[in-house]
Amino acid sequence: MSKSSQADPADKIAPSILSADFARLGEEIHAVEKAGADMIHFDVMDGHFVPNISIGIPVLESVRRMTKLPLDAHLMISEPARYVEAFVKAGANLISVHCEVCTDIPAMAKRIRGLGARASIAINPETDADRVMPFAEHLDMILVMSVHPGFGGQGFIPAALDKLRHIRRELKRRGLSIDVEIDGGVKLDNIADVKAAGANVFVSGSGVFGNPDYRKIMGEMRELIARIPATI
């Protein structure tokens, strides 16, 4: 269980390689690692749960060999139970499964943790956060989608801020200290707002990889989030 009286979890920046140059993937990962990334976000899409197909287990295995950073595997797939073990074996440190396709959140979390990874549940923009909150004590992280999953480069959905506030407020009320991740459209112009609303893990694809200087952009992001108190 993640019940704790400790301080709020640390802030983490997780560049999403969905926006990286795949012809230079190894160089891109080394570049964001050197620039100070805390995690690498790995988007998996199956063409069923979301209307797009991305990357899978062989690529994650390759990425694992390229970096010592934690790999944050976001499974946007319709049958995650079939694949979580393979992703953990391939090197994922954290697995996010969508609540929309997970009928037993505690069982899924127990399985992921039993495999040696951290367990997270993701929530689509149209899904109420209270679908997940009853099971928060079983989780290491809750992932809030601030775009409709499937494609990179979308604009941030402002309603995600209210969802973040609700989640962090409920976690604090229940004495739970777990990560809250935001994924979708996170850039310099809104990262302070999502920190203030309760997120502490910031996935950014084009917000990082769309800039020529990864160290500079992530440094500016850190400066902005560091100004926001870690209390909701």
Rank of each mutant, 00 (worst) to 15 (best):
residue 88 V to Q: 10
residue 46 D to A: 07
residue 32 V to D: 06
residue 86 A to N: 12
residue 58 P to L: 11
residue 123 I to Q: 00
residue 212 P to H: 11
residue 76 M to N: 06
residue 166 H to T: 15
residue 60 L to S: 11
residue 200 N to T: 05
residue 144 V to I: 15
residue 118 R to E: 08
residue 162 D to V: 07
residue 132 V to E: 01
residue 87 F to W: 09
residue 22 F to M: 14
residue 94 L to F: 11
residue 48 H to N: 14
residue 183 D to A: 06
residue 193 D to F: 01
residue 57 I to L: 15
residue 232 I to W: 09
residue 53 I to E: 09
residue 159 A to Y: 09
residue 92 A to N: 04
residue 37 A to L: 07
residue 202 F to Q: 01
residue 222 R to P: 05
residue 156 F to H: 02
residue 33 E to I: 08
residue 152 G to F: 08
residue 88 V to S: 12
residue 1 M to D: 15
residue 92 A to Y: 01
residue 14 A to V: 02
residue 74 H to I: 13
residue 56 G to N: 13
residue 201 V to S: 07
residue 44 V to W: 00
residue 114 G to V: 12
residue 148 H to N: 14
residue 32 V to H: 02
residue 77 I to V: 07
residue 154 Q to M: 10
residue 136 A to S: 14
residue 102 C to P: 13
residue 166 H to S: 13
residue 82 R to G: 09
residue 18 L to V: 04
residue 25 L to N: 02
residue 214 Y to G: 11
residue 146 S to D: 01
residue 208 V to S: 05
residue 79 E to C: 11
residue 123 I to A: 03
residue 46 D to R: 01
residue 176 L to C: 10
residue 179 D to E: 11
residue 135 F to P: 02
residue 68 K to H: 14
residue 131 R to Y: 12
residue 10 A to W: 08
residue 156 F to R: 00
residue 58 P to D: 10
residue 117 A to G: 06
residue 151 F to P: 00
residue 88 V to C: 13
residue 159 A to E: 15
residue 126 E to P: 03
residue 188 L to K: 06
residue 120 S to Q: 10
residue 62 S to R: 12
residue 59 V to D: 05
residue 147 V to W: 00
residue 210 G to S: 03
residue 140 D to E: 11
residue 167 I to F: 04
residue 103 T to L: 14
residue 57 I to H: 08
